[in-house]
């Protein structure tokens, strides 16, 4: 594998001690206790089955934080200071992902029980429900992410390709497929994969599958998984990976921001906390490229700012 100069620079950045430690960068923003109260968030602690905590979260245009408290059959809303505002009731506990439309309505993904997408209005409640399985998606359990784009709603399947299931009017449409994840400036897409235990390959492809740019990110620690890949409105891209040091066993989430041409612009890391409860969505990328991350511990649910230099 040959590396260009920019790649070496990237590697240097990643390995250098100059990269600020996660604790220096991430300022904890909100913490919500486990429990049943308005501000508390629910969890499942079963015996002989999968444990669960709040599956996902997002921050809206007003700076409010919405947490998918599916165990509590609700979406809990908090203000900028983390104060509880209100709850949006949900008709079940099986929702595993959430996103918001430009008109303020919410889309919720139930990929394992009802295998549907729910359209929820804050005032009207459940407005519509659409099936997930169908053309290009055989098993809803293989859905790995959902993206709200200008042209509709996309569902990623097995981290391999994405399918548009709702169109411009947020109604079911003729399904089309793109490799990887739909970029914001369509019809391009972001394609990422683990190239080796310590490297991942990412490329921005045009509508014909040709790479506009490609980049190989190498990490000293082994890569457990690619946590998140997303492009910003200005064309920059943020990549978040989960690494584990084989010697020390320490695990980190590492974020790298690439320029619109795929060059490494900034990088950062935060410690990864292993919890019993399954977390579907670890991070959210803001418009400016900064991140928010959610994590659990025995005290509760944490949502932190994570700013890259």
């Amino acid at each position: 594998m040959s590396m260009r100069g920019s790649n070496w620079l990237a590697l240097l950045l990643l390995l250098s001690a100059g990269v600020a430690h996660a604790e220096d960068l991430a300022d904890q923003k909100w913490a919500f206790p486990w429990g049943d109260g308005a501000r508390a968030l629910g969890r499942l602690d079963p015996n002989e089955s999968d444990a669960e905590g709040p599956a996902s979260f997002l921050v809206n245009e007003l700076g409010e934080t919405l947490v998918l408290d599916q165990v509590g059959s609700r979406i809990a809303r908090f203000d900028k200071r983390g104060h509880f505002i209100d709850s949006i009731a949900l008709p079940g506990t099986s929702y595993m992902e959430m996103d918001q439309l430009p008109n303020g309505r919410l889309l919720l993904l139930d990929r394992l029980v009802k295998r549907t997408i729910l359209l929820v209005d804050e005032l009207l409640g459940v407005v519509e429900e659409y099936p997930v399985e169908g053309e290009l998606i055989d098993d809803s359990g293989a859905v790995t992410a959902m993206f709200v784009r200008d042209d509709g709603l996309w569902l990623e399947v097995s981290h391999t390709y994405s399918v548009r299931v709702l169109g411009l009017d947020w109604l079911p449409c003729a399904r089309v497929l793109v490799p990887g994840r739909p970029a914001r400036a369509g019809p391009a897409s972001l394609v990422a994969r683990l190239a080796s235990p310590h490297a991942l390959h990412i490329a921005l492809q045009d509508g014909m599958g040709r790479a506009t740019w490609s980049q190989e990110l190498v990490y000293a620690d082994s890569i457990e998984r690619i946590v998140w890949v997303e492009d910003l409105v200005d064309g920059r891209t943020v990549v978040v990976v989960h690494t584990r040091n084989e010697s020390t066993g320490k695990e980190y989430l590492r974020a790298t921001r690439l320029t619109a041409s795929g060059k490494v612009e900034a990088a950062g890391e935060v410690p990864y906390v292993v919890a019993i409860w399954y977390l579907q969505r670890d991070v959210r990328i803001r418009r400016d490229g900064s991140l928010l991350r959610m994590w659990y511990d025995d005290s509760g649910v944490h949502i932190d700012d994570w700013r890259l230099p």
Binding site: E48, S49, T93, V113, H159, I223, R225, H242
Partner: peptide, 25 residues
């Protein structure tokens, strides 16, 4: 496995989900 390092598994996930196939970390 999948390109992101996630796994395709079959399991009895819980009371509501039943026994199912899932992509999961």
């Amino acid at each position: 496995g999948d390109p992101y390092g996630y796994s395709h598994v079959n399991h009895a996930k819980g009371c509501l989900p039943d026994i199912l196939y899932e992509n999961k970390y």
